[in-house]
Every structure is written in structure tokens, then in C-alpha cells.
Amino acid sequence: MNATTFFMLIVRRQLLLAVRRPIEIANPLLFFLMVIVLFPLGLGPAPAQLATFAPGIFWIVVLLANLLTADTLFRSDFDDGSLEQLLLSRQPLYLSALAAITAHWLLTGVLLALVSPVFALMLNLAPSAIPTLMGALLLGSAVLSLLGGVGAALTVGLKRGGMLISLLILPLYLPVLIFGHGAVVASVGGLPVAPYLAILGAMLCLAIALAPLAMALGLRISVDA
């Protein structure tokens, strides 16, 4: 079996597992919605004020949603022994890790990007900024999934990895927060957004090149320990 077929096999497997338990797909979205609701309640419902904070609120919630789901990335495969089998498969672990991340991104980042216009209107974000928001979310959430995967790979063997993974990964998420937020703010202000998206794209290229390597090392260590 060649590497591309195996890559597609893993993506299909992860998606099928998610479809069989739809609540797993809905969870990040529900979390997203509920946290968004917290902000008007906490900050006050004044539309102008919400509109100012909307880009920041969005990105923080995306960060948290990604963080929460990252922990589950390899957990069940580790528990039931599938991960051992993957390590022994002689398929490039780099591509296998990338495949798992691709599936994770489709199920969290892409879904969040697709529903984001609704939430953007709820937070009174300027409608003209919505395409930028979606584009930045698509790029940025892919970086977040890759970084989250590194944290997940390093902590999957530990009994209480959940809290630890936030300490490990949140600092690494910050550049995405800064530039993703910057893109939306620029778009609201009518400024060019291409530089922001380009930087997010550059981060994505770097993350695709390096994060799966770290994941592969992390998974070997976790299965070993």
C-alpha cells in the first residue's frame, strides 16, 4: 500500500469514526456557541462594544475549542492499541500524523469556519469582514490543529494530559491569535488583509513541514513510556 492511499485511509477512518458518533462533531460547535453567549452576558449587550471585541472573542473561542478537542486526537487510538499498530506499519509516521490532523481540521476548523458567519452576526461584526474572518479561520485553525497535535502526541500516554496540554500548547497558539485577530480588525477598518493572510499561510507551511515530525517523535515516546 503506498503512502497516499494510507493517508486517505486514515482520513476516511477518522471521519467515519466521527460520523458514527455525531455528538463528537457537534461538541466543539456547541462549545463555540455557548462561550460566545457568555460574552454579551459578561461584557454587556451594547452592539457597538460587542462589535469592537468580536474579532478577539472569535479567536479566543476558536483557540479554546481547538485546545479541548486536541486532547482527544490520539487518545482512543492509544487506549485501544491502534497507535501501536500504526507505529509498526512501516508507513511514514509523518504522513500518518498529518492525515490525523487533516481529519481533525476538517471536523473542527472547517466546521467552525462554516458556521462562523452566524456567530459573527450575533456579535454584530461588520458583514463585510465575514469573508476575511472565514479565510483567516480556515488557515489559522489548520495551524492550531497541527500545534495541538504536537501537544496531544506528547501527552497521550499520560493519565492526566488534559490540563497539561493547555500549558504546553497555548503559548504556541499566540502568533495565530495575533495575526488572525489582526486580519479581522484590518478588514473591519477597510485596510488590506492580504499581508495577514499571507503570514498565516506562511505559519501553516512551517507547521506542515515541522509539526508532524514532532508528532511522530512524540507518539513513539508516548507508546514507549
Binding site: 467515519l16 469514526l17 509498526l88 500518518s96
Partner: peptide
């Protein structure tokens, strides 16, 4: 290494071992 949510057929067709 058997996924409870998948059928035996799917489990083998999508098994992660090489």
C-alpha cells in the same frame, strides 16, 4: 486495536497496521 464504532469489515479494511 478494534474500534467499537466500526463493523468487523471496516475494522479490518481500515486497520492501521501495514
Amino acid at each position: 486495536a478494534v474500534k467499537p464504532l466500526l463493523t468487523p469489515r471496516e475494522n479490518l479494511a481500515m486497520h492501521l497496521s501495514g
